[in-house]
């Protein structure tokens, strides 16, 4: 499972609270490689990350994604989806997005949904 958030502070809050390995742009290179490696081999079942994993880094596949604070960007949404959805026979992946009632997140999610391609 990969948890996506918008801000680093939330990544660390989740990492502290639920003891889930965190990757941000300040994570030392070796530690980042080690975490990704352990995630690939299944030693870690879950990681939490901010924008750093969205581009250019080869991330092992995951079958569940959770977006904790989404953005209005369709491109970013697709990228996150792409992180868990890899072409593979018979693979089923699920992407959850948490949209909190009474916050701006509702508007942001709606804007993305109806934005033109």
């Amino acid at each position: 499972m990969i948890i996506f958030t918008e801000h680093n502070s939330l990544v660390y809050a989740i990492s502290r609270e639920f003891l889930i390995p965190a990757i941000t742009h300040t994570t030392p290179k070796e530690e980042r490689a080690e975490i990704l490696d352990n995630f690939r081999t299944g030693r870690y079942t879950c990681i939490v990350t901010s924008k750093v994993l969205e581009e250019g880094i080869d991330v092992p596949e995951a079958s569940v994604g959770v977006i904790l604070s989404g953005s209005g960007s369709k491109r970013e949404y697709k990228q996150r989806l792409g992180r868990i959805l890899r072409k593979k026979e018979g693979k089923l992946a699920i992407l959850y997005e948490l949209v909190s009632k009474g916050t701006t997140e509702i508007g942001i999610a709606r804007r993305r949904k109806y934005a033109p391609e």
């Binding site: 609270e17 639920f18 003891l19 390995p21 530690e31 080690e34 352990n38 030693r43 870690y44």
Partner: peptide, 27 residues
Amino acid sequence: PVLARRAVFEAASDRRITNINERAAVI
């Protein structure tokens, strides 16, 4: 810190932590 985190993450990985008590137990 890197070693401390590795030890904690590995221990926490087998048991999903969902509340404060489970967290305290792992720590």
